[in-house]
Deep mutational scan, measured.
Amino acid sequence: HDVTIHAGDKTIHVHGASEEFLRIIEQAKRDGIHEEELLRLIEELVK
């Protein structure tokens, strides 16, 4: 999957995102996670 995530003034493109990655991001959004926290989460996941 190619994913584009908008968080605040940043746009992150993730190529080859796994289903698990997508679920984590969707869950985080539903939980109302702060955008900066979401960015950190994404950066950890894509290392």
Rank of each mutant, 00 (worst) to 15 (best):
A7R: 02
K10R: 10
I33W: 12
L22Q: 06
E26F: 09
H6I: 15
G32L: 05
E26I: 08
D31H: 08
T4L: 05
E26H: 08
K29S: 09
G32F: 04
E36N: 12
I25L: 12
G16Q: 09
E26D: 09
E44G: 08
L22D: 02
Q27H: 05
E44P: 01
H15F: 07
R23G: 04
K10Y: 10
A28I: 05
E19K: 09
H1R: 13
A17H: 04
K29A: 10
E26N: 09
L39A: 07
A17F: 13
G32A: 04
E37P: 04
E19Q: 12
F21T: 08
E19Y: 10
A7H: 09
K10H: 10
I12P: 02
G32P: 01
I25N: 00
G16A: 08
L22W: 13
E19W: 12
K10V: 12
I25A: 00
A17L: 15
E35V: 14
G8W: 03
E35F: 14
K29E: 08
H1I: 15
I24R: 13
G32T: 02
A7E: 03
L41D: 00
T4N: 06
V3E: 03
L38N: 00
F21D: 03
L41P: 00
I25M: 06
V46G: 07
I42N: 00
G32R: 04
E35R: 07
E35G: 15
D9R: 03
L22Y: 08
D31G: 08
E43S: 10
R30Q: 11
V14T: 02
V46W: 11
I42T: 01
E37R: 09
E19H: 13
E43M: 15
R40N: 06
S18T: 14
I42Y: 04
I24M: 11
E26R: 10
L39N: 03
H6G: 06
V46K: 05
K10P: 02
E19N: 09
V3L: 12
E44S: 13
H1L: 14
D31A: 13
D2K: 12
A17S: 04
D2N: 14
E37H: 08
E44Q: 12
D9W: 01
I33T: 06
L41R: 03
I12Q: 02
L22N: 04
D9C: 06
D31T: 08
A28Q: 02
R40T: 07
L39K: 04
L41Y: 04
E37F: 12
Q27E: 10
S18F: 05
R23V: 05
I25D: 00
E20I: 08
I25Q: 00
S18C: 02
G16N: 13
S18A: 05
G8N: 05
K10E: 05
S18G: 07
T11V: 14
Q27N: 09
I12H: 03
G32D: 05
H1M: 14
L22R: 09
R40K: 13
E35Q: 12
G32W: 02
I25K: 00
H13P: 03
L39C: 07
E35N: 12
L38R: 00
R30H: 11
G16H: 10
G16L: 07
V14H: 02
E37Q: 12
S18P: 07
E44K: 10
R40I: 08
I24L: 10
L38G: 00
I5R: 01
V3P: 02
I12A: 03
K47F: 13
A28N: 01
L41W: 05
H34I: 12
I24N: 02
I25R: 00
I5C: 02
A7P: 03
T11M: 10
H34K: 14
H15G: 04
K10I: 13
L39H: 03
H13Y: 09
R40W: 08
K10S: 08
I33Q: 04
E26K: 07
T11I: 14
I24W: 10
R23C: 03
K10L: 12
K29H: 10
V14L: 12
L41V: 03
T11K: 06
H34T: 15
R23M: 09
H6K: 09
E19R: 10
L22V: 12
V46F: 13
D9I: 04
E43L: 15
H15Q: 12
G32E: 04
E35T: 14
L39V: 11
L41N: 00
R30M: 12
E44T: 11
H6R: 07
D2V: 15
E35K: 10
G8C: 04
Q27V: 06
H13T: 14
R23D: 05
Q27F: 05
H13Q: 09
L38T: 01
H15K: 08
D31F: 12
Q27S: 08
V14Q: 01
K29T: 10
I24C: 03
R30A: 14
I12M: 06
H15S: 11
V46I: 15
A28W: 15
R23W: 11
V46C: 08
L38Y: 03
A7T: 10
R30L: 13
V3G: 03
D2A: 12
A7G: 05
G8D: 05
F21K: 01
R40V: 05
S18H: 05
V3A: 05
I12V: 11
D2E: 11
H15V: 12
V46P: 01
R23T: 06
E36S: 14
L39F: 14
V46Q: 08
V14D: 01
E36L: 14
A28L: 13
E36H: 13
I24T: 08
L22I: 14
H13M: 09
I42R: 00
H13C: 05
Q27R: 11
I25F: 09
L38K: 00
D9N: 13
V46A: 10
A7F: 15
K10C: 02
E20M: 10
E26A: 12
L45C: 03
A17R: 01
H6W: 03
G32V: 02
L22A: 06
E43C: 13
S18Y: 05
L41C: 01
K47H: 12
A28S: 06
G32Y: 04
F21P: 00
T4Q: 07
E20K: 04
T4K: 05
F21A: 06
L38E: 00
E44D: 11
E43W: 15
D9M: 06
G32S: 04
S18L: 06
D9V: 03
V3R: 01
I42M: 05
I12R: 01
V14F: 11
R30V: 08
G8M: 02
A17W: 11
E20Q: 09
E20G: 06
H13F: 08
E26V: 06
L38D: 00
G16E: 06
H1W: 13
E43P: 00
K47C: 14
E36K: 11
A17P: 06
D31C: 08
